[in-house]
């Protein structure tokens, strides 16, 4: 496995370590990144450690700690990293399948609605990263036969609780917001509560299974 990576400035107060290169998302690299992220959490002068999809952003106070030092720690840490992260917690999320997109989504893949629901609910997903919206999980592990390009024009108000698929990724909307992903169903599972000290319910490394509460035509 090539160990190519880049480190770039995101302004003077953040560095982005990107280990994806031109490749597709890799589960093994993500596990190494999450272990690396944990090793940064307690460093003085570092404000935030933000795992993305095969990348990691470190936000720091540039008047307190040098970018060179953070960059060196990132490079060394990545080279030495191993996928030591534990299994994470597991969550079961009940889904009412149906609604706006499901029939058209199935037709576009030449599948029946039942096939789509079965394959979506059969997979074991891993939370690769939390971000974009409050508590939004980027879920890897989607059945490749359900991978579908995002909508050409995003929808303005995809509702909170929408269970969605975009490209090869799965997710759940934590708030009502614009999204170009396809809606397969709805859940009442709470992804985010600003009144908790740790506001996001899911964490990187957790596993998620969807269960079929019902299928609406």
């Amino acid at each position: 496995m090539s160990d190519h990576f880049t480190i770039s400035d995101a302004g003077i107060g953040a560095l982005l370590l990107d280990v994806a290169g031109d490749g597709a998302f890799e589960e093994a690299r993500q596990a190494r990144l999450l272990a690396l992220a944990e090793s940064f959490a307690a460093v003085d002068g570092i404000d935030d450690v933000v795992p993305g999809m095969n990348n990691l952003m470190v936000v720091f106070d540039p008047l307190a700690i040098g970018a060179e030092e953070i960059g060196r720690r990132l490079a060394d840490g990545w080279r030495k990293s191993t996928a030591t992260i534990g299994e994470g917690r597991s969550h079961e999320i009940a889904v009412s399948y149906g609604g706006t997109d499901l029939a058209a989504f199935a037709a576009g893949l030449d599948l029946s609605v039942e096939d789509v629901v079965e394959r979506h609910a059969a997979a074991v997903y891993r939370v690769a990263a939390i971000g974009a919206m409050p508590g939004f999980p980027y879920l890897s592990g989607l059945d490749p036969s359900l991978a579908t390009p995002r909508r050409a024009v995003p929808r303005q108000g995809v509702p909170k609780g929408a269970v969605i698929v975009g490209g090869g990724q799965a997710g759940i909307m934590p708030i009502t917001a614009p999204s170009g992903w396809h809606i397969l169903g709805h859940t009442d599972f709470v992804l985010f509560d600003p009144h908790r000290a740790a506001p996001a319910t899911l964490r990187p490394g957790d596993t998620v299974r969807f269960t079929v509460a019902r299928v609406e035509p």
């Binding site: 995101a10 982005l16 990107d18 031109d22 993305g52 971000g131």
Partner: peptide, 13 residues
Amino acid sequence: RRELLSHGIVPGT
């Protein structure tokens, strides 16, 4: 031209 995977961004990007 390449597709990027989702990554953290800061205000000012």
